[in-house]
Design a protein around this nucleic acid. Structure first.
Lengths: 120, 120
DNA sequence: CAGCACCGTTTACAGATGTAAACTCCATTT
DNA sequence: AAATGGAGTTTACATCTGTAAACGGTGCTG
């Protein structure tokens, strides 16, 4: 399931809370993204057509919910980058960030902890 | 510097070896990507216009070299994903892969080594 | 009952991307 | 000199994306 960048902003709102009516989604995004109402309507529609969100009737309007789970999307995106840039291996990715001083002290500590808790 | 997916395949060839003449690039990609000659010419041209590759005259033709370094591109792409999906922190990214059993034994070993070699 | 408001649906349009063919120069071959 | 062939340059065109306005149906309101 391909989700464009702009579309993912709409998904983000729904992942955080749902179901939501269109006007709630619009309210959440118009400010944050400086988008016009029409823009958000279009994105919602594209997501509907892609089957990334579901709409259930609620009286005269619809309530929207994500069908595509955030986890699945994050996985696909992450794996895509990992495969394209690091030959599918995680260590080189981390090494890359390390070499570019992109690891905060917290990151290092968290990584250390993660590794320790891993299977052999 | 924005490089599209298809364009990055052309860059990949040049990152591996350069300078190269167009026909060498075409030879390297036509098979691997199942692209027609025309397609590769277009991509090369777009990269030239974007300033991602340089062309120096060599008799009747040009030899192409990357101007955009692979490292810079990898950094930009990686950081982009990290920021968009993991709030800019590396540990959650690794945790994600870990949770999805996307870490090979080698990965874990390499990570362990990396972490050990890091500053406290 | 007529018009208004609100939602959802359609249409619009420019720029990026994937994919490729057509065209144009020059140099080299016949 | 004419034809051929290779390299670069232009043009083409469908799809996707970002961004939005126009349109249409239907309850609610005066």
């Amino acid at each position: 399931m391909q989700i464009s960048d702009a579309e993912s902003k709409v998904m983000a709102v729904l992942w955080q809370r749902h179901p939501l009516a269109a006007d709630e989604i619009i309210a959440a995004l118009a400010a944050a993204q400086d988008w016009q109402e029409g823009t958000i309507k279009t994105l919602l529609n594209r997501l509907l057509n892609k089957g990334a969100v579901a709409a259930t009737r609620d009286g005269r309007r619809y309530l929207y919910s994500p069908l595509l789970a955030r986890e699945a999307w994050v996985s696909a995106e992450s794996r895509g980058l990992l495969d394209r840039l690091f030959d599918g291996r995680v260590a080189p990715l981390v090494a890359h960030f390390s070499q570019h001083r992109a690891l905060s002290r917290d990151d290092v500590a968290a990584l250390r902890k993660l590794i320790e808790e891993m299977d052999p």
